[in-house]
Design a protein around this nucleic acid. Structure first.
Lengths: 212, 212
DNA sequence: TTCATATTGTACCAAAAGGTATTTTTAAGT
DNA sequence: ACTTAAAAATACCTTTTGGTACAATATGAA
């Protein structure tokens, strides 16, 4: 193998720390001093391990997706659970993360995506943040357009709109969570939006059975 | 009167320009160079007229409230218009602002309030941003608890929750608007949340008329 | 026309920003 | 034990940050 001094820090641990700084402060607001202090390494170690601030951010963002977004997906496809319940479990799982005391409140992505418009985020990072935006919308839209129950309720007729409604609600709860609104209150918000989606679906989709 | 050289710039115009920079970049992201360039004045003029970055921000925030928030309130209290319609008009008026091409997209306050948790906003400004948060929630809650129609629909029974749902939806649309989602799509989201609020109200509030 | 005063423009300051060069330390391979 | 190589620590670089001193320039009052 190659010789040389061994790394004192664990790359994943350092990345987790960096992620939490970006989560709390955004890309622009997070300084290298903030980052390296929280990662417990010095600047040259950071640069040799991660490249520069932008590529550290890109890796931290990927780390966030892998460790804080994907875990919720399971709830969406659980067997033998009504669609509305699956959606609620999915959304409340995300809300729980947004309100967790173990990590910064709110959503990493909502904050950083809102920084994009300011024009101070480098090109590659901007591209990633914009791409990420599409995924959950597409995922929910696909669910609404393919799920048996969704189809029988007519929710497939505006799958994109229904997905957008839920996604928007989650962006809203992210902002509220950052302002320390507790998850118990946000649960009511989620319930309300789900009620709206499901009752809109019905009114649009259920034709009179006696006709046609 | 007092003598001396006359001001070349209009204070309100300069404040409007500063507001737009904070709106696009947040408090942390907006540099004095950004601000003074957009205000078309130099730093000493800025400092003599507005104090420092923090007090400029406080004045810009007040300017935002006066010029971009208060205008929507009329819709809430319009006579002879159903409550649901009034709420929709109010919310769509805000969404229209969030999506306007005349100003930065999204909401000034949502961005800056999300910066508070980062800890880099000075004390007075932080205090203001937190105070502001309470007003629209209280306003909607009061409407739900006092409006005749709201009471008859039972929406007063959870006026705070209903207010929170709508407020959260607006925070969500602010984030979506910043990502350039068009108002036509956000209108569907607003409709859905309103449907949720009103149908939740009904299910809670309408007791079986044959009983009791 | 002079005088006092307020605003401007330029130049400047110390601190913090992102990023590196260089030296010191630590480890593995021989 | 000695070399080689990689990581760490310190010091440093340039640019930008928020904020000012100071001289130049207008303006109304006397």
């Amino acid at each position: 193998m190659v010789s040389g001094r061994k790394r004192k820090f664990n790359e994943q641990t350092a990345l987790q720390a960096a992620m939490e700084v970006f989560w709390a402060k955004g890309f622009v607001g997070a300084s290298l001093a903030d980052l390296t202090k929280s990662m417990n390494i010095n600047k040259p170690s950071m640069y040799s391990a991660f490249g520069n601030k932008e590529s550290l951010f890109i890796k931290a963002t990927q780390h966030y997706i892998d460790n804080n977004m994907k875990a919720h997906l399971g709830a969406l496809y659980a067997a033998d659970i009504p669609l509305k319940t699956r959606l609620k479990n999915y959304m409340m799982s995300i809300v729980g993360m947004q309100c967790s005391t173990e990590q910064p409140k709110g959503c990493y992505l909502v904050l950083c995506q809102s920084e994009v418009a300011g024009g101070d985020i480098p090109a590659e990072a901007t591209k990633l943040l914009i791409e990420i935006e599409a995924a959950p919308k597409a995922l929910l839209a696909k669910l609404f357009s393919t799920d048996k129950e969704a189809i029988s309720l007519g929710l497939n007729e505006n799958s994109a709109g229904n997905a957008l409604s839920l996604y928007t609600a989650l962006k809203g709860t992210a902002a509220m969570a950052r302002s320390k609104v507790p998850p118990t209150e946000l649960e009511f918000v989620i319930d309300t939006m789900l009620t709206g989606v499901f009752s809109t679906g019905k009114s649009h989709a259920i034709p009179s059975p006696t006709l046609q």
